[in-house]
Structure formats: C-alpha cells, structure tokens
C-alpha cells in the first residue's frame, strides 16, 4: 500500500511563496510515494510557480515516485497551456467546454 500525501496549495504559485512552497513540495515527496497536488485554490501562477511544478515532476520521476497535479485552477491551466507543457507534466487537464477551441 503506497503511502499517499495530498497537498492543497492555498497561496498563489508565485515568486513570493516559491521558497516555502519548494520546501513543502520536496518534503512531501520525500515522505510519501505518491503526492497529489491540489491547485484548485491557486489564482495566480508565474514563472517561478511553473518551475516548481516542473521540478516536482522531475524529482518524482527520478525517485520513481508519483506526483500528480489535480484540479488545476483556471490560472494554472492557462499558463500550462500557454507554455505547451501539458504533455510534459502529463496530468489530465479538465478543459471546460466554453474554453475549448
């Protein structure tokens, strides 16, 4: 039974919180085999935030663990979409009908 940890980020994924969030995410990854990251509360994401997501994914892959991003907020989705990283991150994205084009 792999132990699983769920993190819900309350703050925005921006440079202002990047330092603490990095620690938090990597700690979680160290302690658990599977990390589930809930981004539904994130209303803003900048490059620093994006880097953290990439870092989390990469580290998880290296350690043979799972890092899954769930419930992308609209802001997160648009950044990932803009940077064409959906495939790299590999999480299922829910695209609401009115946004699909």
């Amino acid at each position: 039974m792999p132990n699983r940890q769920r993190i819900t980020l309350q703050e925005d994924l921006t440079i202002y919180h990047a330092l603490e969030q990095k620690g938090r995410l990597l700690d979680a990854l160290n302690q658990a085999d599977e990390v589930e990251l809930d981004l539904s509360q994130v209303s803003e994401m900048d490059t620093a935030g994006l880097q953290l997501l990439i870092l989390l994914k990469r580290e998880a892959q290296k350690a043979g663990k799972q890092a899954i991003i769930v419930a992308h907020s609209q802001a997160v989705r648009s950044v990932i979409d803009f940077c064409n990283l959906a495939a790299y991150l590999g999480d299922p994205l829910v695209i609401p009908a009115q946004e699909a084009h």
């Binding site: 490059t47 990439i54 064409n84 790299y88």
Partner: peptide, 25 residues
Amino acid sequence: LGIETLPDAMPEAEDMDPESCYLGF
C-alpha cells in the same frame, strides 16, 4: 504557432533556487 518550454537548465533539487529562473523557450 508553437512554443516549447525548456527546463533543462534547472539544477538538482537541492541546488535549485526557487527564486531563480531556469527556463528557456
């Protein structure tokens, strides 16, 4: 028309400074 994000420059987790930018496009 197309964009690719390159995170290759990002160092190992311990050395990665979350306030630095490592991305290329």
